[in-house]
Each structure stands twice: as C-alpha cells, then as structure tokens.
C-alpha cells in the first residue's frame, strides 16, 4: 500500500502549492513596465493604442493592489498588463510589416511601369 500513500501525499502537496499565496514582490511590476516600454518604443501608441491603454490601466491597478496588500490581485494584474503590452507590441510589428509590404509593392509597380516604358511589355514577361 506504500505507492498509494505516496501518491496521495504528492497530490495533496501539489494542490496546496497550486493555491499557495505568493509573497508580495515589487519586482513583478517591472516585467509589465518593461513590456510597456518596449511596445511604446515600437510606436504602439499609433498602431495598437487600445491594447497599450489597457496595459497601462492594468499596471496602475496592480500598483494599487500592491499598496492595499492584495498581492495575489497585484500579481495577476501585473501579468495582465505585461501580456497586454506584449500583444500591443506584436500587433504593432504586424501593422508595420504590412505597411512596409504595401510600400514595397508600390515601388515594384513603379519599377515595372518604368521598365515597360523603356523596354516594352517584354521585360515583365518571364
């Protein structure tokens, strides 16, 4: 019966660990702050303003929760702020890439038109 006992004990421990209260850690706001800075540096203000604002709000709430000694809430809010900033960054980068793609396509069309003008249609046929 030893395996059963061990298993049961492990399960109990795991459950306890899962809902154990995390000690307050002011550094956990740092990740969120860094993520927001990164997004802003990539110009998220223009391309993902809603996500960016949401991230700021969450960070603000996290900071308040820390002051009010609600560490669990503070951690979750900080994590939400962080991931929202990461999302803002990813969406900004995608928008920038799409804009660049459009620019390059227009350039290509221009080059194509110029060459056709000089060399005739033949130059654009493979």
């Amino acid at each position: 019966m030893k395996p059963i006992r061990l298993l049961a004990a492990a399960a109990a421990l795991a459950l306890l660990a899962a809902c154990a209260t995390t000690p307050p850690d002011p550094a956990m706001l740092d990740n969120a702050r860094n993520a927001i800075s990164q997004a802003e540096a990539a110009n998220a203000e223009e391309y993902a303003p809603i996500e960016l604002r949401y991230a700021h709000e969450r960070l603000q709430q996290a900071s308040q929760a820390l002051e009010n000694e609600r560490p669990d809430d503070a951690r979750r809010l900080a994590e939400q702020a962080e991931i929202e900033a990461q999302l803002a960054l990813a969406r900004t980068r995608a928008a920038l890439a799409r804009a660049e793609l459009q620019r390059k396509q227009e350039e290509l069309e221009q080059v194509r038109a110029d060459l056709v003008e000089v060399f005739g249609e033949g130059v654009v046929q493979p």
């Binding site: 991931i83 990461q86 999302l87 990813a90 969406r91 980068r93 995608a94 890439a97 799409r98 660049e100 793609l101 390059k104 396509q105 350039e107 290509l108 080059v111 194509r112 060459l115 130059v123 654009v124």
Partner: peptide, 25 residues
Amino acid sequence: IARAEAFRAQAREQIDAVEAERTEL
C-alpha cells in the same frame, strides 16, 4: 500574440518575395 506574430512573419515573407521580384526585373 501568436496570431499577430504569424501575420507579421507572413508580411515579411511577402516583402522578401516583392524585393526578389524587383531585383529580378
């Protein structure tokens, strides 16, 4: 986030293709 990153990668790939076509022309 994964979706946005994938869109970005897709656009980048298309940018490469456009640039290659331009060079070829």
